[in-house]
Each structure stands twice: as C-alpha cells, then as structure tokens.
Design a protein around this nucleic acid. Structure first.
Length: 468
RNA sequence: GCGGGUAUAGCUCAAUGGUAGAGCAGCGGGUUGUGGUCCCGUUAACAAGGGUUCGAUUCCCUUUACUCGCCCCA
C-alpha cells in the first residue's frame, strides 16, 4: 500500500510542468542576432575531411571483423553517477571535465566522457554474463570532456574502443595491445607501446603506503599540484612533468617491486606474448593512467617520434617541444563490473582517439584513399531533354553505373565544367536535336572526341566501353 | 583552472592613425549546344564592446574565439 502511494507520488512528480523559474529563464533568454558559431572545442567535420574518417571507419570494420568483435552503440547521455562510480571521483575527468546538468525531470545527467563504464553497465543490464564468455565488444562514437582545447584535444572527440569482458587471462591483455598496435600500424603510423602493471587492489595498497611515505619525506620539494594530489591520488605523482618532481620520482619505489605473485606472473605472461609477436614495447614504470578502474596491465601507444624525444637527453634550448600525446590507451579493469553492482567480471580494453590519429596522418603525410570517381556524367539541354536525361540518369544508376549530373545548371558549358572537375571518363549529352533523332552524344573527356549513339542502345554500349 | 601568441573576403595572405589590396574559390561574360588553358567583369572582410584622438582596421583596455603550452587525457 505504502509502495503504491509512493509510486503515485512519483508519477505525479514526473508529470509536473517544468518549474516556472526555468520556463521564465527560457522566455527571457536573449537570442543573439549574430550568426551562431560552433561552441568552443567543437568542430564541424566538412566534406573535405571525410576521406580521413572513411579510412578510419574502414580500418575499424576490418580489424573488429578479423578479431571477432561485435559493435555496441551506447547513449551519449547517462546518469552522472555511472561515471563517478567508475572513472573515479578524484579524477580530473569527473572532477572538472564532465558536461553535467540537471534535466527537466530533475535527474543529474552527463554527456559521456568515455565508454568503458557504459560497456560495463550494459554488460550488467543485459545479462551478458549469460552469453558465452568472454564477450567481445567494440564501440565508435563521440565522447565529451569540458577541457581546454588544444592540439589533438576537443570537447567533443571520437573514440574507437574495444572491450573483452569475462576472462582474466593475460593472453587477452596481450591481444588487446596487439589490436591497438595493428590498428595504428595498418594506417602507417610508426608507434611504440608503453606498458606497465599497477597490480590488483592488494598489492597496490601496500605500494601506495610505501609511495606516500616516500613522498612525505620529500614533501617540501614537490610542486603545488603534487602536494595536493599526494593524499588523494598518490599514483598520479609518478607522471608529473614538473622538473623538481621528475627528479624526485627517479628514486621513488616502483610498483613492479610490490606486485603480488599472481600480478607479477600475469604481467610477465603479457610481456612474453608481446615478445613472441615482436611488438616493440617499453616498460614504463611511471605509466599509471588516470582512471580509477584500472588494475594490473595498463598501456599507452605513442607515436614513435615522441618516444625518440624521450630517449634523447633534454638539451638546453631544445625546441620543437611537441606535447606528448598518446594515440591510444587502455588496460585491464577487473573490478569495474563489480563496482557497478554486477558479479565479479574481469575485463580488458583500449580506446583510440581518432582526431589524434588523423592529426598524425596529416603530419606524416600518409596515403589516404581519394574519393571514388564517377564514370559518367549526364548533361542535358532544354526542358524536354531534361526530363529524358533525368530518366536516363536513374536508369544508369540502377544498372550500377557510377553516374553524375548537374541538373541545376542548364548551359552545356557549365555542365561540362562540372563533369571535368568530377574527372568522369564520359559525358552523355542529350539535347533537342538528339531527342528528335533518337540519339545521344557520347563525349570522351580525355580525348575530347564525340560520337553519336543510338539512344536505345546507350546502356549496353557504355557497359561495353567501361569494361575495357 | 593557469600562462604565451593571434584575430582583415569562403580559403591563404598583404597594406595603412585619414575612403582596405591580391591570389585561389564563387558567380556572370568572351553571341544562340561543348570542359581542362587564356582574357574580361563581379560578389565578398577590418571578431565584439569601450577608451585615447579632429579622425582608429591600425595605439590602449575588456570580452569572445582561435592557437600553442601547463594540468589532465584519447
């Protein structure tokens, strides 16, 4: 009874009209008369850019098919608490970079800053533990972080990622790394894998104590940020780039020395797989990853130039200090599903920032396929010819020809100009004269020659010519 | 969140304390139905607000955006 009442109350609450203040707010909102601009950190992807995206989408399709992954599409908007519980409250992503707001139903929601948490949520929601394990999923879509835009960083950016849920074997960690590596190298990017293990809850606990003790003894020499980070997220001190902190961390205890037997053997096996497959990797004891849910294996993939710069001793006055930018990142997260209320489920995955990959492709001038060319252009002159030409266009199209047109332009000169720009092989010209004769002109664009064809045989004729 | 640089036409770039130029792109021409070259014409800009000045696109300030770094991340 009481339950029912509560339900009624909820329903009532839900159908309440929008709060009056909010309605007023909308009414009083000053609409600018200027042409609206894209929001800061957001970007239009124009037609000229699409070939880069087409390339990446094609690579994603190939890779995921090869490795037996299935696509999952997740909502862009989720309960804010999903990300707080998974990514971690003390992380910058959640702490200051989420697009969060209260919706009209008084729900606290956020645009997704990443997808792994959603995958774990979906895995639980849809009972995927009943499927044959492991479950192999991939996603591709926009993520949102309210961050300061800079090179390779936007507030809306696209990630491609894969996740394997339901198995803890090190071979999967290795295969995930290999997939990410293959994705990037198949595009032609020279990359290097940075890998580390941050252990499980047990060994990390001991390590954290040692680490905090170590840093406490040097506290006065740390930068301001690190002083603040120390109690909250001590692991993060390890990848501070401040000079004085870098000096200190040389002597800091390393996580590998604290790994429990299981974590240590897991890590060793991952590395053995990488060696067997000759994946170039670097052990990076300073790699910790910012998201709370990671356990054991963590990795990033860097462009090789960055790796080279790191190996080189920093020269005084060295210029070209390009930001160190990871193209891909990932690792194992054996606790995440459980944190979100599912049964204990080990998992591992990666994500790749597609804008960053495109940036590198451009930087290195890598080959990107051109837009597919059209073979035939249909030009028309005069109203009745236009009707017939449109019909011809449809016929050719349904016959499978790559055919183009510009019915919006009437002059033959203009139409040929368009045909020329499209780089077609042939232009079919249909005017009043041809119409009355039952013919059509075929112009060979490269040769500049023309011949008259029988209109009724044009499809057959062209087919023959294009076969050669 | 913090610091540096920048802001002129759709794009790439000039010049100037006193009516803003070019190249590319666009559109229209070079007689009625013929592209790629060439020629001619034409559209189109000083990010917004304030200050100094007789007068500001130019100098100063603020805002906004872009950009490059830091933080963090893909």
């Amino acid at each position: 009874m009481a339950k029912l009442k509560k339900k009624e109350k909820n329903v009532k609450k839900n159908i309440k009209p929008i709060k009056t203040e909010k309605a007023d707010e909308a009414k009083n909102f000053k609409v600018s008369k200027k042409t609206p601009q894209v929001l800061r950190g957001f970007k239009d992807i124009l037609p000229g850019e699409q070939r880069y995206w087409d390339l990446l989408y094609a690579k994603v399709a190939n890779l995921t098919t090869d490795y037996g992954f299935e696509r999952i599409d997740l909502p862009l908007l989720e309960e804010t608490s999903l990300f707080i519980r998974s990514v971690g409250k003390e992380t910058d992503i959640v702490d200051k970079e989420m697009f969060s707001f209260v919706d009209r139903g008084n729900e606290n929601v956020s645009l997704r800053p990443e997808a792994t948490a959603q995958i774990a949520r979906a895995y639980i929601n849809h009972g995927m533990f009943n499927l044959p394990q492991p479950v192999k999923l991939y996603y591709l879509g926009p993520m949102f972080r309210y961050d300061r835009p800079q090179s390779g960083r936007y507030r809306q950016f696209y990630q491609f990622g894969v996740e394997v849920l339901g198995d803890k074997q090190p071979v999967l960690d290795a295969q995930i790394i290999i997939m990410a590596y293959n994705f990037l190298t198949s595009i032609g990017l020279p990359v290097n894998v940075q890998v580390n293990s941050i252990g499980c809850n047990n060994c990390r606990k001991e390590y954290k104590v040692q680490l905090v003790n170590f840093y406490k003894s040097q506290k006065h020499d740390l930068c301001e940020d690190c002083k603040e980070r120390l109690p909250k997220n001590p692991l993060r001190l390890l990848d501070c780039k401040e000079e004085k902190c870098s000096a200190i961390k040389e002597d800091a205890p390393q996580i590998v020395d604290f790994l429990c037997d299981e974590c240590k053997s897991h890590f060793m096996k991952v590395l053995e797989f990488l060696e067997e497959l000759e994946i170039p990797y670097s052990l990076n004891s300073q790699l910790v990853r910012g998201l709370d849910y990671y356990t054991k294996t963590v990795f990033e993939i860097w462009p090789q130039a960055e790796q080279a710069a790191l190996d080189k001793q920093p020269e005084p006055g060295a210029e070209d200090k390009k930001a160190q930018i990871a193209l891909a990142g990932g690792g194992r997260y054996d606790n995440l599903v459980e944190i979100l209320g599912g049964r204990p489920t080990p998992a591992v995955g990666f994500s790749i920032g597609l804008e960053r990959v495109i940036l590198k492709i451009k930087e290195l001038n890598l080959a990107v396929p051109e837009k597919e060319k059209r073979d035939i252009f249909v030009a028309q002159l005069g109203e009745s010819a236009k009707r017939k030409a449109m019909k011809l266009y449809e016929t050719l199209r349904s016959e499978g020809f790559k055919v183009a047109e510009c019915f919006a332009k009437d002059g033959l000169k203009n139409q040929l100009e368009v045909a020329n720009k499209l780089g077609v092989k042939y232009t079919l010209i249909l005017g009043q004269k041809e119409l009355s004769e039952g013919t059509i002109l075929l112009r060979d664009m490269d040769a500049g020659s023309q011949e008259t064809l029988n209109f009724n045989k044009v499809v057959k004729d062209i087919k023959k010519r294009l076969e050669v």
